[in-house]
Design a protein around this nucleic acid. Sequence first.
DNA 1: CTGAAAGCGCTTACAG
DNA 2: CTGAAAGCGCTTACAG
Lengths: 334, 334
Amino acid sequence: MVTMQDVARAAGVSPMTVSNVLNGYPHVREDTRDKVLRAVDDLDYRVNVAARNLRAGRTKTIGFAVPEADRPYFGQLGAKIIAHAATRGYHVVIEQTGADRERELHTIAGSRNRMYDGLILSVVGLGTRDRDLLRTNFPMVILGERVFSGPADHIALPNTEGTYAATRHLIERGCRDIAMVKGNDDLSDASVTALRYDGFRRALRDSGLEHDPARDIAIEELTMAGGREGTMRLVDSGVRFDGVVCITDTVALGVIRGLVDAGVSVPGDARVIGFDGIDESEFSVPRLSTIAPDHDEVAARAVDLLLDRIAGGEDWQAQEFVASFRLIERESTV
Amino acid sequence: MVTMQDVARAAGVSPMTVSNVLNGYPHVREDTRDKVLRAVDDLDYRVNVAARNLRAGRTKTIGFAVPEADRPYFGQLGAKIIAHAATRGYHVVIEQTGADRERELHTIAGSRNRMYDGLILSVVGLGTRDRDLLRTNFPMVILGERVFSGPADHIALPNTEGTYAATRHLIERGCRDIAMVKGNDDLSDASVTALRYDGFRRALRDSGLEHDPARDIAIEELTMAGGREGTMRLVDSGVRFDGVVCITDTVALGVIRGLVDAGVSVPGDARVIGFDGIDESEFSVPRLSTIAPDHDEVAARAVDLLLDRIAGGEDWQAQEFVASFRLIERESTV
DNA sequence: CTGAAAGCGCTTACAG
DNA sequence: CTGAAAGCGCTTACAG
């Protein structure tokens, strides 16, 4: 394996000059630089990142930890985070945690973190009880819920407000018997399900509508398959409904599929609205109305907050930021 | 920052004993192990991965480089690769290259690679002309096309065979005027578009059908938006068609959306078939028929091949493997 | 079963 | 503008 030593010898300079050239240090004579670059080329030299990281004490890389790599939402957000970090000279790598509390904690505590200067952690399994575990020195921004005020920087989605707006939208369109398809989380913890469910119920209450728990559908996984399965249960139960608020767009796509399978026309017999604003929502049949948080804003804020934290000193205060959102009205709620 | 030294001092042992405990070396006395683990806990010690990597000369991590992080296909494949690598004791991290030749080369050549013991590279921009650049010592498995026989291990998709089967399927269902929506790549290089387009034309020829270039639609990006836009062009051109072969499922979803917008019913007026077998294809309206390569097989083979290569000695021969596929018949081609 | 020493390949002050 | 020396924090032979 070719080392900086080898390059130095070939170029007739010291290793440190090679290092200077490679790191773009300006005060290097033109012909010295040329000699070095030629040697690098000749020997096909690649810097050893592990050595550089060890010595420099930083990696110029941040990790983006997602629950599941195959959820469109995270892929789309990841692409934006990568793009924004690049403008600030940072590289981003995507890690999968595994969508449960155990593995999220492992990712936080894990030795892996030292591979990154900081971590953007999309959290789904952790709850308020884990607050203390987030009290680490490691630069970290939490993405997702708003329950962790205190220990770490935090970017929240407008969960309650968003679902509130979604539900009001259905009501304005004339829906009276509205179902909600959500996760099966414990509602006592401030999970995404709990927060969004809260917005749903508040909107019903504020509109003077009765909340019938028979129209609450809890599903195991927030996938299209889960959404479809939950919808079949709702239809089979025989309970009347004319609108469905879905916890995510992905779930909503499964709900639409399930309604079509059951012969329920969308939006004719039932209107459907999602949450997230993923790209797919714009192309489904029918097109999906949704609550779309500003993902560019989320990505930019997450990166900026993290880099501030990495650069920053000791006197740091945890920040919280709630993303703004738009209600996008499409065919599924016409 | 707490180091192994600190832990050793606190536990009253040598750093090397700490290292042994942390790495699960078996010959350590029970109470010594306990003392060490207690000190680790008390001091909240985390091993410095950069130092470990430098000394050990390996990272136990492999990179999965994808063109774009927000394409469902790669997310879904990534999740499978992560799962399979985990069973073999390896960690996987997802990197985004950026879907062009320049950046793919950069990823290959990049110093980043040294952060990984090996790289699984999903290639879209590289072509046959880049063969020599892949002649590196760095363990690498190419995913995607079959044009690189020689320099690197390679997992190919059944591009030509798959599209051949897709086209034949449409013909069997009664289609006679079949369009293809594909990328706008140079057909002289063996790009995904060129290979799949080849299968399309062969199937037409073998069935005695005329190939009308007016029904070839080239799109800029292999996205839903691209698929829809291409479809609008096809419809606007006024050329007759009763079937559409799509280069990917994602494009096919856009095509379906475009057809619905144009008042063309699927499959009544035109049948549509995709390629990839992404999860979304099972839940679209109508459900999408597709050519589904065996992704579990692809993921497992890619990881196995790469780990063999990492472990392996000098006498190594580049391997090529073509994934098997299934034709999944769904509503879009009934 | 445990430890003292060497060294992985860089970059960081410091000199000149 | 360039270099000699030290050291980042581990693990790897090697001893005992």
